[in-house]
Amino acid sequence: MMGFIWFWLVAVMIVGYVVLDGFDLGVGILHLFLPRTEGEKRASLHSIGPVWDGNEVWLLAGGGTLYFAFPLLYASAFSGFYLPLMIVLWLLVLRGVTLELRNHVDMGVWLSLLDGVFGLSSALLAIFYGAALANVLRGVPLQTDGYFFLPLWTNFQPGVHPGILDWYTIIGGLVALVALTLHGALWLTIKVSADLEERARKLIGPLLLVLILLTFVSLIGTIVVRPASLDNYYRYPITFVVPVGVLAALASLWWFNRNRHPVKAFLSSSFYLFFMLAGPCWGVYPTLLPATTGADRDITLSRAISGPHTLSVGLAWWLFGMTLAVAYVVFVYSRFKGKADADTAAH
């Protein structure tokens, strides 16, 4: 029971992170080409200025919860994915620094450099996150002692000894890139005005089309790479509501965008991300990290979970901490209503 609860608590925190930091990563990706004038660039950055760093804390909190509840998984994944995780950390540093430095540097050529690094690191982070999730679903070559090592790529085939990048994880990266770019464009239609808003809106249709296509490709890819993903669904057919939810979220996104309800379209996109993450979580449950080297080496919930006393004490603190965090999110976003523009005071 505790295992079930903590599995989904970690999942909830990952969803919280992707939905919240997702849109500011998307705005970062769009920063590469969407805003044309200096004023538009500032408006676009001001639309995420007061919230992006708070959003990123969900990643830390999610990592902390993972470490707390499933130490074996944490140890195994953080040494097996050492290099990619370090690269993610560098990208997060570069992204935060370039975004903040922009307010302090006023020479043209430096500004373009900062904008470029900010946009590129945002795009790479989105791709890394998608590829990371796909790695977890495909499985890694776990040894009997719980260690594993993956090269960055091998022959791009998922198999017993895959690389971090293969055709399946690249699809995962692309899904994340397009989904978060769309999420960011929807955020811009809420938060900025005039030409920039119009250009963001024009991107939504094509992005949505590509995303629908990629969603189906990734779904089929997942079933090919891990046929057992459907077992839980067949055992509890009611849970097919999750893939139906993905389709419903895409449909409502299209509908609300067409009828100019930007907030509802953005919420639909959030639900899309929620269902797209909940789906594979349920597909692997109760495995946390599948082994490509034989199911007996899987890191499962029961193998990885902390002791019962730790978990019950942790649950009380988690509820307390998350109540504070959610109250903070509600407070910040309620203070940050309306449109941002070039002159909105920097936070």
Binding site: S79, L83, D145, F148, F149
Partner: peptide, 11 residues
Amino acid sequence: SHVVSSGNGLF
């Protein structure tokens, strides 16, 4: 960790 090489650590 037995799987993080010293080269990775140095890098």
